[in-house]
Amino acid sequence: MVDFARLPIPVVPYTPVCRSGSGISVMSLEDLLEKVPQTLLSSPHRLGFHEILLVTEGTGMFSIDSTRIECGPGSLLWVRPNQIVQGAPQPGMKGEVILFTEAFPLRMQATVGILDDVLRPSFWQLTESELGQFGRIMDLLRDEFRGIELELGEHMLQHLLSVVLLTVTRICRDRQDYRLAHHEIDHRELELFQRFRLDLDRSFHRTRRVEYYATALNCTSHALSRACRTVIGTSAKGVIDARVALEARRLLAHTRLPIGAVARQLGFTEVSNFTKFFIRLVQMTPGAFRRVHGVNFDG
């Protein structure tokens, strides 16, 4: 199995600015672009931390795990640790950026879900009302970050970051991208779903059978699929397929493994079955996907 940590894709470490030792940084996009070499930004790289970007002016193109995103005013992006990202902001692009480590946020309710779940949405185009609300929270967060009170200031920043994360969760809920935070959801189902996601990240390259995960989680396949439908509106099989498809896109776009080797890495015994799977999930062949992403290698 390919270990992405060993791929020649640089990992950008978290480097706090202004507040030494703090697990959060808040800055303008312009300030961030001055610190990041353009060659790194435009090349595939990974972050060792979370980055939330709110675009306020201008346009640019970003790619998160091979999904290309055109951004403009009101665009909100959330890049999670170890997602493969590229950026091409155009001159004049402005925005607000929050960087934070996995350990910094307060312990959140189960309704917020797993913060580093790579299957959660990474992009939203905010409505005028959403943008106004998010902007007000950003103003408070920015002002507190620039303050001089360190001890209480850190607690304030943690709480304000919680408001940011809860606001994103509510946006997901309202758009039915992610059903978290509905009061009707049984927390036992949320816990089951979260355990499933963690297990899936460890085992998706070995099996795509719902029964395997249900047995490992000591529940029935029906109960597991019900939990998935309650939380994100799709079956357990749909969640498994989405995770495998994500890894397939990563391998095809960022390695030079032959397509047959990619198929084997993901547990497919026949390349034809992998090709059918990929077409169903991505709507193009693996070879066409590689060509779209500039990988001229169809071995």
Rank of each mutant, 00 (worst) to 15 (best):
T215L: 14
V231D: 02
F204K: 06
R243M: 05
E211D: 15
F204W: 10
D186W: 08
E247S: 08
L200D: 01
L190F: 00
D199C: 13
L252C: 05
E211K: 15
K237E: 12
A181C: 12
L200K: 01
R229N: 12
H205K: 15
L198E: 15
A181H: 07
D186L: 09
E189R: 14
R209H: 12
E191P: 07
E247C: 05
C228H: 02
D177I: 06
A236W: 00
H187Y: 09
I185H: 08
A216R: 14
R229H: 11
R179I: 07
D199N: 10
D186E: 13
E247D: 14
D199A: 15
L251I: 03
K237M: 10
V210W: 00
H254W: 14
H182W: 06
R202C: 10
V210K: 01
T255K: 02
H205Y: 12
V244N: 00
R226V: 09
T207F: 04
E211M: 09
K237N: 10
R226N: 13
H183V: 12
A236S: 08
R179F: 07
C228W: 02
D186N: 15
Q194T: 04
D174V: 13
E189K: 12
D186G: 06
R250T: 00
N218F: 10
A242F: 06
K237P: 03
S225Y: 08
Q194M: 12
R173L: 12
C172A: 15
T215P: 00
R249C: 09
R249V: 01
R249Q: 10
H222Y: 13
R249K: 15
L252Y: 02
T255M: 05
R249F: 08
L217T: 06
S203N: 15
A227Y: 01
F193R: 01
H205D: 11
I185R: 04
L224Q: 00
V244K: 00
R226G: 02
L198G: 14
R195I: 05
Y212C: 05
E247A: 10
E191L: 14
L252R: 04
L190A: 10
R229F: 09
R179N: 14
F193P: 02
E247H: 09
C219L: 01
E191S: 13
R179Y: 04
L252F: 02
A248P: 00
A223Y: 00
L217H: 03
L251F: 01
D199E: 13
V231C: 12
R195N: 13
L198K: 15
L190S: 07
R179W: 02
I240C: 03
L224V: 05
H187R: 14
I185T: 09
Q176H: 13
A181T: 12
V231S: 05
L180K: 05
C219I: 04
A214W: 06
S203E: 15
H254Y: 15
H205P: 01
R229L: 11
C219A: 08
T230P: 00
R188P: 02
Q176T: 12
R250Q: 06
G238Q: 06
A223C: 09
A245K: 00
R202M: 11
D201W: 01
L180W: 08
R175K: 14
G238R: 03
Q194Y: 11
E184M: 08
H222A: 15
A253Y: 07
S221E: 13
E191M: 11
A227T: 00
S203F: 14
T220F: 07
R197I: 10
R250P: 04
R197E: 07
A248F: 02
